[in-house]
Design a protein around this nucleic acid. Structure first.
Lengths: 206, 206, 206, 206
DNA sequence: AATGAATGAGTCTTCATTCAT
DNA sequence: AATGAATGAAGACTCATTCAT
């Protein structure tokens, strides 16, 4: 799988059509929304029969939940790895976090779109689990912001809301990013990193 | 209607149940999404019969279109008024635009949520019309950014994408704003204005 | 409607297809059982479309409940009327009750069959309501039995269980009665009345 | 297995899961009816997989047939044995037959319930076979009745229908019997025997 | 004998929409 | 402008059954 091509989120799980189904669900929900996509649509995309879906997943909403869980797992893992490998100072850690985030969006745009738009249709424990994972993502950024503010690197007067604002801004990238767009992946990451630092009122070189 | 309380978007139109239906549609689409809400849901919320809906609106998608059009009209009007009344310099015009935007969100949160999440389900001319209106909104900000960059007030190296980023960031406020939240409406506007100026790399007083 | 021909249970209700639907449901449930009959079957029998059913009834089980309720109402009403019109002594009151019961079975055999076999598929309040009505039916007989025992007319040592046994025995008639059978309606009633009196150990003329 | 506790109908057959499956089917059909119970339900109750069912039974309806056949075999066998061991006179033979019947119901209530309610869903030869067995059961009672009538012991004017009425009355016991009920097994048998004799208008000691 | 994956027909129910009144 | 009745297509999900292993 070329790193440049939009990778499918779920690799073969060694269990029949499972991966195909999860990826198909992601695509279907991305293209038509959770309520706009039917289980038949998903089955068609997965190249299997409608009823066979239910050998893998007990319901449509659990299918959404499963797909979102996997997407978030992947995102969180990437973020943590990126931050861990970055240097010590807040600015470079932030930069690496943003880079990883952008990379995830570029490679799994649909996953991000679905993640952003369809979580609201989760209910009960599935919703709670997802919210918890989102909080974990946010915590990564909150910690960096706190560190930078403590060090005097970030001078924003609203550090408390900054991480959330950052995340929604970043997440929104999945709404308009096009592979054939003006900016390369690297430039996009650079741009978003600069936006992030500016938002936090880090001193910038002009 | 007290300006502080969440106002209904559509005031009485002098045509039977029209306003009730449009507002009901807004609420229904906001609560369950376009495909998740049924015409029956809308009728119930509007306090009328299912079939009577079709005396006012020819189809469900036209209902969405109509509702979104009104929301956008209102938003654009407010933005233009705010910018016109502001001073001449880019920074204060931006500040007023952000203020107006935040005020709209606070007063018509559901309208903003629906506007953000459900446009994708419009098709054909309805979609085109809406996109055009959105572009008008964006143009307001683009013009301010261009002005500020020309005047050297905004030093962002990415002025082209800045307006869009600004708008999505602002729009996202509708996703988390709660009337009972920590910040007052004024403080929220102030915060968002500061974020905006920071993003554009306007010199800030520390 | 000739009293000799099997009458439909529900007469025109003045509300569209309602009567047709309820009678169709009765027939369908009678012929194939509650779970064996599909809503499509009911619709077909009623001469309307599947979806139109739901303009009259919210669910399949509520349809069963409604049908059973009406059948029981009719039965109870007939029983009470018959007993009221009978003389004072237990034996003749019993005889009239049995007669009325048999007449109901003959005229509404399917209703009785469904009533006997499909109540078990009711749940919740629908079940409770039906059970209550059944108890009302049983109470009619219990009272007669108690009266007869008190008067010394009925000498059974098991008066407590007699009413129930009587009712199930009578109800079972709906399982084998055939209009073209050996016994006329009157003879059938006479036979069942004699069985009933014998069961209660009333002195019989030999 | 304690004779007092409700025994499973089918003992180990020495063929893998066969007994478990047949007993599970009985329970499932008893709890939800033939059409209300799915093969999946049966498999779950049997503790095996859905597809494994088909290694023992070719279809759902044959499963019902098999189960009913075994139940009836057992019942007929018990009846015959009881009658054979009884004395010569009709009254005591009837008494023993009723006793055996009640004992069967108490020990295999579910089997009786299914037998009563679900035969109607059999078709073709399965149905014919079952009907034949039922006729055998009825014949046992018919013969006793005939004998008693001939001897002047039973004075009912309707001997022809008496056996059937007796059997449905007895069978209905399975519909309301509860192990924790007021009457012991012996008392229940006694009560039903008395009902039977009364129905046949045998002279009773008062 | 046992399983998990697969399927096509069928389940109940809801959909957006139309029509007669 | 307003309603209740009506409809055909589609919704999610389950059915009994088969097949490869």
């Amino acid at each position: 799988m070329n790193a440049r091509s939009p990778a499918t989120l779920v690799a073969d799980t060694g269990r029949g059509n499972e991966a195909a189904i999860l990826n198909a669900a992601l695509d279907a929900f991305g293209a038509q929304g959770f309520h706009g996509a039917s289980m038949r649509d998903v089955a068609k995309r997965a190249g299997t029969s409608l009823s066979n879906l239910y050998n893998y997943v007990p319901s449509k909403s659990r299918l959404l939940a499963e797909v979102l869980r996997r997407a978030n797992d992947e995102l969180v893992a990437r973020l943590r790895a990126a931050v861990d490998e970055a240097g010590d100072d807040a600015a470079s850690r932030l930069r690496e976090a943003v880079r990883a985030y952008v990379r995830f969006i570029v490679e799994h745009q649909v996953a991000m779109v679905v993640s952003t738009n369809e979580v609201r249709y989760l209910t009960g424990p599935d919703r709670a689990a997802l919210v918890a994972e989102r909080d974990a993502t946010q915590a990564v950024f909150e910690e960096i912001v706190a560190q930078g503010v403590a060090a005097g690197t970030f001078r924003t007067p609203y550090p408390d809301d900054a991480a959330r604002t950052l995340l929604t801004t970043l997440g929104a990238v999945s709404g308009w990013y096009r592979p054939e767009g003006r900016l390369s992946r690297g430039e996009l990451a650079e741009q978003q990193a600069r936006y992030a630092l500016a938002l936090l009122e880090a001193p910038l070189a002009h």
